[in-house]
Simulated assay, not measured.
Amino acid sequence: MNRSDVPYSPLDAAPSTSDRDYKLKQRPTTARDVVPLKRSNSLSYKTVLGSELPQGIRQRDKFVPLPLDSSRGASPGRVEEEAALNEIAAVAPGASGRARITVYCVAESLDRRKLVDLLRIKHPAWQTHQYDDVVHARLEEVAPALPSTSGGAGAFTAATAVGPPDVFFFDYGVVAFWGLQQQQEAEILRSLVRAVESRPLERYDVDAFTFNISVSEPPHIQNDTITINRRQATDHQVRLAMSHALAQSTKLSVYEERVVALVEESRHLPQVLAQHGRVSMSTKKLAQLIGKVFLQSSDLNLLSTVMDTPEFFWSAPDQLQALYERACEYLELDTRAEVLNARFQVLQEMLDMLRDHKNNSHAARLEWIIIWLLMVDVILMLFQLLSLFGLV
Rank of each mutant, 00 (worst) to 15 (best):
S4K: 04
Y8K: 10
P10T: 07
P10G: 10
L11V: 14
A14V: 12
R20I: 08
L24D: 10
L24A: 07
R32F: 03
V35R: 05
P36A: 06
L43W: 15
V48D: 01
L53V: 05
L53A: 13
D61H: 06
F63V: 06
P65K: 07
L68N: 08
D69T: 15
D69S: 14
S70M: 08
G73Y: 00
G77R: 02
E80K: 07
E80C: 04
E87I: 05
I88K: 01
G94R: 02
G94Y: 04
R98C: 05
R98V: 10
R100I: 15
R100P: 03
I101P: 00
I101K: 00
V103C: 03
D111H: 08
R113Y: 15
K114D: 08
L115H: 01
V116N: 08
D117L: 03
L118M: 11
R120F: 11
P124H: 03
Q127E: 13
T128V: 11
D132N: 08
D133M: 07
H136Q: 13
A137R: 02
R138L: 08
E141F: 12
V142C: 10
V142S: 13
P144T: 11
P147N: 07
S150W: 04
G152N: 14
A153Y: 02
A153G: 06
G154N: 08
A155R: 01
T157F: 06
A158H: 06
G163Q: 01
P164S: 12
V167M: 01
V174D: 01
A176G: 06
Q183T: 12
Q184T: 14
S191I: 03
L192D: 01
V193I: 13
A195G: 01
A195S: 12
E197W: 05
E202I: 09
F209A: 07
N212Y: 11
S214I: 09
V215N: 05
P218G: 09
H220Y: 10
H220G: 10
H220L: 04
Q222V: 13
I226D: 01
Q232I: 06
V238G: 02
V238E: 03
V238H: 02
Q248V: 05
S249R: 10
Y255H: 09
V259E: 02
L269T: 02
P270E: 12
Q271G: 07
G277A: 09
V279A: 08
S282H: 13
I290D: 04
G291M: 06
G291S: 15
G291R: 08
K292A: 11
K292E: 12
K292F: 09
F294R: 15
L295T: 07
N301F: 04
S304T: 13
M307F: 08
T309K: 13
E311L: 14
F312V: 07
Q319C: 11
L320R: 00
A327N: 00
C328S: 06
Y330N: 10
Y330E: 00
E332P: 00
E332D: 06
R336F: 09
E338H: 11
L347A: 09
L354D: 00
R355K: 13
R355V: 09
S361E: 10
I370K: 09
W372S: 11
L373K: 08
M375H: 10
L380H: 10
L386A: 10
S387D: 15
L388Y: 07
